[in-house]
Simulated assay, not measured.
Amino acid sequence: MKNPYETLGVKPKATDHEIREAFKKLAKKYHPDLHPDDKTAETKFKEISGAYDLLKDKDKRRKFDAGEIDASGAEKQQQYYRDYAGAGASGSHARQDGFAGNEGLDEFFAQAFGGRAGGMGGGGRANMKARGQDVSYTLRVSFMDAATGAVNTLQLPDGKTLKVTIPEGAEDRQTLRLKGQGGPGYGGGPAGDAYIELHIQPDAHFVRKDDNIHLDVPVTLKEAVLGAKIEVPTLSGPVSLTVPKGSNTGTKLRLKDRGIRNRKTGQKGHLYVTLKVMLPQADEPELAAFLESWTPGHAQNPRKEILS
């Protein structure tokens, strides 16, 4: 995985603001909505989202700079236990517990129980069962997968994969437990569990606040002045929204039950749309001529509050 600083095109000493602005610029350029069916753009968007997810977290950025974690956010030493998995259940368990091998484990049991093979229920070490070690991983999840639920694949250090079910409404840094997917047990004991910490990637348009979703939507001057029906995106697809006559930048509209489903109550939050009035990008001589000759019926000073 590439260095996150190189992925975002910033220097290692970049400020939080510089990192955030670099991500916004790249996210707008490579967002999948702007490049449908373009796998290259989709891959690029995932890379820059992953890099931003790491660098925006002060603690993870410090750990990465110190060499404690890799570019994926995984602690480098967490891979060691998997390196011994091929040695068999008992062999790997001895090593993951800090012994050189089964001989070291034998010596430990001999000292702990006075060299008596029968000191462990009459069967000695041969009859001992121990639960496997728990392991921890991080998994980057897209905003939409977290909001609506999905099944993602987690690539493990040893090349194996785990299928991880992302629950609808999953939250950033939420930890999922996969029972029996951790380290192998010893002597026929049960395997440990895998704990997956979810890292939700930011979306280029939607912003989550609790169970509500917020979205900025641009509208034309004509739509704002005269009112209109427009299409806006939601988590479940585009819907029609009525822009009231005389709307202004900052006008906030609510789409009920179009937000995130609460995991405890089952109720959905709302989608709040904030309008942004956009002037024409090209020259409009008739509009300019009208405004030059137009005398407002009501005097207005939009800067009154900031000048007082």
Rank of each mutant, 00 (worst) to 15 (best):
P233C: 11
Y272Q: 01
K76M: 15
P202W: 01
T249S: 15
L291Y: 07
E223P: 05
Y84A: 12
L275N: 07
E286L: 05
S247M: 05
D145A: 13
Q300M: 09
K179R: 11
M120T: 12
G114K: 12
G123V: 10
G115D: 14
G159A: 06
V141R: 10
P218S: 09
E171Q: 15
I48Q: 12
N3I: 04
G189I: 07
R116H: 09
I306A: 07
L198C: 06
M128G: 06
Y81T: 03
A27F: 00
T242S: 02
S236M: 08
T40L: 11
Q111T: 00
H93Q: 10
K76F: 04
G149H: 11
G269S: 02
N248A: 13
T138G: 12
L221C: 09
Y272I: 12
A130H: 09
T43N: 15
H199W: 15
G227M: 07
K44G: 00
R173H: 14
E286Q: 12
A299S: 09
F206N: 02
A71N: 12
K28L: 15
K56S: 10
Q79M: 03
T138W: 10
N212R: 00
P285L: 04
P167F: 10
H93N: 01
G104I: 13
E231W: 00
L34Q: 09
V164I: 15
F99G: 02
G192H: 07
H298W: 09
S142I: 06
K222Q: 12
S247P: 07
A282R: 10
S247G: 02
K209T: 01
L255P: 01
F108Y: 15
F108C: 08
L271Q: 00
Y137R: 15
G86P: 06
Q78R: 14
F109P: 14
S136Q: 11
D211N: 13
F45Q: 09
Y80L: 15
A299Q: 08
R125K: 14
A22K: 01
F99T: 05
E21R: 04
L154W: 01
Y52A: 06
G73S: 13
K28R: 10
Q281N: 02
K2A: 12
D172C: 14
D65M: 14
G101M: 06
K129S: 05
Y81F: 00
A66S: 13
A112F: 11
P202R: 10
L139I: 03
T220F: 03
K252I: 05
L307R: 07
D193K: 00
W294E: 00
P233H: 13
G114R: 14
V10P: 05
G101F: 03
E107R: 15
Q201D: 14
D203P: 03
I306W: 00
R303S: 11
F206P: 04
L198K: 04
Q281K: 10
L307P: 00
I230M: 09
P36R: 06
E103I: 11
D210V: 04
L55W: 07
Y186C: 06
G132Q: 04
D70H: 14
F113K: 12
L287C: 03
K76L: 14
Y81W: 03
P280E: 03
N262P: 13
Q155V: 13
A146V: 02
K264S: 08
P184V: 08
A27L: 00
I260A: 12
T242Y: 00
R62C: 00
H205G: 05
A194D: 06
K276E: 15
L287M: 10
E18T: 01
L54P: 05
G119T: 06
R20P: 05
P157F: 08
